[in-house]
Each structure stands twice: as C-alpha cells, then as structure tokens.
C-alpha cells in the first residue's frame, strides 16, 4: 500500500469514526436550539459556534458526516452493482442487442438527473420521517447514477474479451462460461472498485446539490449538503472561518476517497 493510500484510509477512518461517535462528540444533539445564543462564535460549549437558530454547528457537522459518509457508499454500491450487471450484459450478448443496450445507457445518461430526482421526490408521500426521506434520496441517487459506470464496465469487458489471453483460452477449448468466470471477472474487479470509489464523492456532492436546492435531507436533520447551503454568504467567511468546516470536511472526504482508491505508484501484483 502506498503512502497516499495509507493517508486516504487514515483520513477516511477518522471521518467515519466522527460519524459513528457523533452522539458522544456532541451529546446535545443536532436539533437542539439555543435561541438565546444564535450565530454565536466558537466557545468551549460550542466548538464551531452556533447557527442562526442557535444549533450547535459541531453537532450538526458530525451528524451530517454520519448521514453523508454512510449513505453515499451504500448508494455507490447500488450503482456499481447495477453498472456491473448492465455493462457486462451489454458486452456479452449478441452484437445488435449490445448496441441497443449501449443506446439505452446513452439515453439514461442524457436524462436530467436533477429533474428526475425532483419529480420522484415530489411524487413520494409527504408523511415520511426525515431518515426515510434520506434513504429514499440516496436510493434514488444509486438507482439513477449507474449508466456512466456501465459504459466503462462494457468497455473493460470488450477489451478483455478480445485480449490475447482470452483468445488463447478459447483456442485451448475453454467454454464461454468458464472463460468469463475465471479470466474476465477477475480483471473487472479493479474497474468496479475504482467506479465504486469514484461514485461515493459524486453522490455526496449530488446530495449536497439537492440540499442546496432544499430537496435533499429535510430539516432538522443535517447533512453536508444542507450545511454547505449555509455558505452562500461568502462575505462573512473571513471573519467567521469556522463556518467553512462542512466544506473542508467534504473536501477531505473526496480527497481521501481518491487517495484510498488510487493505485498510482503501486507495483503490479
């Protein structure tokens, strides 16, 4: 493991630990309003100060970490699984059928994801608890976010299928099913792992965008998206730098995921 990957893993470990231990780090909870101390500067009681409603910013950040860092990988896993199945299928079926499937990926890619999410969210029942709403949001991200990865998987399968080693295996009399199971699938594993790691920050940012539009996580539950939406007032950031904490957390997470997923500098196995 390279130093970069170690750094990425360590950073992710810290972030996940913060999310898991949110209740210990901020026992006051993310929704408690100290209305006598709104927009307070950092104090020993509120390390990152309070927001406009007097809610502890640190509590909201660590609970938001739990939301974003646990649900984004779950959504990425859904999307990667769908991409693996669809990409693999499009590469191994008959040529004409493969082209139709590829066309379907392109059509799905061309659909405005945000519009779809807004429409689907509006169609859902209103009386759903915030956590359910959150699960729905990330599930939708996972269900709608796989086509670009499917194209990459298809390209990887086609490349492997036409490689010299596959040709040699076929010449040696290996049946198709065994060829795919023994030779092609192992070669796909790094591709799928990379797609999984790449999709996590994409979905974190996707939820952040929905949050900025007021469509992601609903009040009072925090997420990095809803916390980032509070950064619109850039003028006050120099005098209140602690308000940048959610942006720094998101940046760190994205960086750590990339470092952890990077194989650069590693010698081949």
């Amino acid at each position: 493991m390279t130093a970069a990957r170690k750094l990425g893993c360590a950073g992710l470990g810290l972030l996940y630990a913060a999310g898991l231990l949110a209740d210990l780090i901020a026992p006051g909870g993310y929704a408690a309003q100290d209305r006598d101390h709104p927009s307070a500067r950092p104090t020993p009681a509120h390390w990152l100060g309070t927001d406009e409603l007097g809610r502890d910013r640190l509590a909201r950040l660590v609970h938001g970490t739990r939301v974003s860092l646990f649900l984004a990988p779950a959504a990425a896993a859904i999307a990667t699984a769908l991409a693996a199945v669809a990409g693999f299928a499009s590469a191994v079926v008959a040529r004409r059928a493969g082209q139709v499937l590829t066309l379907a990926f392109d059509v799905l890619l061309s659909l405005p994801l945000l519009f779809l999410l807004i429409t689907l969210r509006a169609a859902l029942p209103l009386q759903v608890p915030p956590w359910t709403s959150l699960l729905i949001t990330f599930t939708l991200l996972g269900l709608l976010g796989w086509p670009s990865s499917a194209r990459i998987v298809r390209a990887a399968v086609l490349s492997s299928r036409d490689s010299n080693y596959a040709l040699q295996a076929r010449a040696a009399g290996l049946v198709h099913s065994r060829l795919f199971a023994v030779h092609l699938l192992p070669h796909l594993r790094p591709v799928l792992a990379a797609q999984f790691l790449l999709l996590i920050p994409v979905f974190i940012l996707g939820e952040a965008n929905l949050g900025i539009l007021g469509l992601g996580v609903v009040e009072p539950l925090p997420s990095w998206g809803s916390l980032l939406a509070e950064l619109h007032n850039l003028d006050t950031l120099p005098s209140e730098p602690w308000r940048t904490a959610p942006a720094l957390a998101l940046l760190s997470a994205v960086l750590c995921f990339h470092l952890a997923g990077s194989r650069h500098g590693e010698s081949p196995a």
């Binding site: 969210r121 509006a122 209103l126 009386q127 608890p129 915030p130 469509l215 609903v218 009040e219």
Partner: peptide
C-alpha cells in the same frame, strides 16, 4: 411535524 420542502410547482 414533518417538514417537507417541495418545488413550487409541486
């Protein structure tokens, strides 16, 4: 209460 923000047309 459950707060539900919706797009204005919805």
């Amino acid at each position: 209460i459950v707060i539900v923000p919706l797009e204005m047309p919805s």
